[in-house]
Amino acid sequence: MTDSGTIRLALVDDHKMLLGALTEWIRGAASDIQLVAAVTTFPELLAHPGFPVDVVLLDVDLKDNTPVSLRLAQLKQTGVSTVLMSSYTEPNIVREALASGALGYVPKSEDVSMIVNAIRAAHRGEAYISAELDLAINSGDVGGSPKLSAQERRVMALYGGGEPVKTVAYELGISEETAKSYLKRIREKYRVAGFDVGTKVALRKRAIQDGILLQTD
């Protein structure tokens, strides 16, 4: 890990145009992320003088016939967290990637802010996938409420119970920015599932209906 909160990042993608665009986007979007390497092959990454880094943003479909699970295992051995990116969003591919040790999975069509959030989450050791992908891989609950992580449920319970964001952050030992990020993600998951929890009142009502918050009055 680096000091001063800087995340050392490496990009691996065999599409040079996308690699160049990602390099510019990330440099312009996040002052806490230091781009150490942007390479087109996995061997280039391993041989790079700046390796190991904190987080690797890795294209799932590098054309070198090496299983992604093997790359993930190699990176894990060196203490590197990995976020996978791909044009594939099929649930089985995402599930397999996460089961193999990836901490994040983002479609290449995602907004750069989502990719930055995934990199930050991986640096903290937390899993991150977009709300749409999360809904797709947990689609056994189609027509019902979205599946929330344990931390998302805690945030929803505290905030829905009337606590301000600052108190939610304090209670859970996270930053205010992280608490806001959780709330945004919770609302997005519900939006994708067809529920509007845009207001605090609506979110509280939904939390009670879903058993996350007990009706106390």
Rank of each mutant, 00 (worst) to 15 (best):
G5W: 08
T6S: 12
I7D: 00
R8K: 15
L11A: 06
L11C: 03
G20L: 09
A21K: 11
T23S: 15
E24H: 06
I26R: 01
G28P: 00
A38R: 07
F42E: 00
F42I: 02
F42Y: 14
P43V: 02
L45A: 05
L45Q: 07
H48G: 08
P49S: 10
P52Y: 03
V53A: 11
V55F: 02
L58F: 02
V60A: 11
D61C: 07
D64M: 09
N65S: 15
N65C: 07
V68E: 05
R71V: 00
L72I: 03
Q77E: 15
Q77C: 03
G79V: 02
V80F: 06
S87K: 05
Y88S: 12
P91H: 04
N92R: 15
V94Q: 04
R95E: 04
E96D: 15
A97N: 04
L98P: 14
S100L: 05
A102P: 06
L103H: 13
D111M: 07
V112D: 02
S113G: 04
S113I: 01
M114Y: 06
I119T: 01
Y128E: 00
I129G: 06
A131S: 14
E132D: 07
E132F: 11
E132A: 14
D134K: 09
A136K: 12
I137E: 01
I137N: 09
I137Y: 11
N138P: 04
S139Q: 12
G143K: 08
K147Q: 09
K147C: 02
L148Y: 03
E152N: 08
R153C: 11
R154G: 10
G161I: 00
G162N: 13
E163F: 15
P164T: 11
V165L: 13
T167A: 14
V168T: 12
V168I: 08
E171S: 13
G173Y: 12
S175K: 09
S175E: 10
E176H: 12
E177I: 12
A179P: 07
K180G: 09
K180M: 09
S181M: 11
Y182M: 05
Y182W: 03
L183H: 11
K184R: 15
I186A: 08
I186F: 10
E188C: 04
K189R: 09
Y190D: 00
R191A: 13
A193S: 15
T199H: 12
A202E: 13
L203Y: 07
A207V: 01
Q209F: 04
Q209K: 13
G211W: 03
I212N: 12
I212W: 09
L213K: 08
L214K: 14
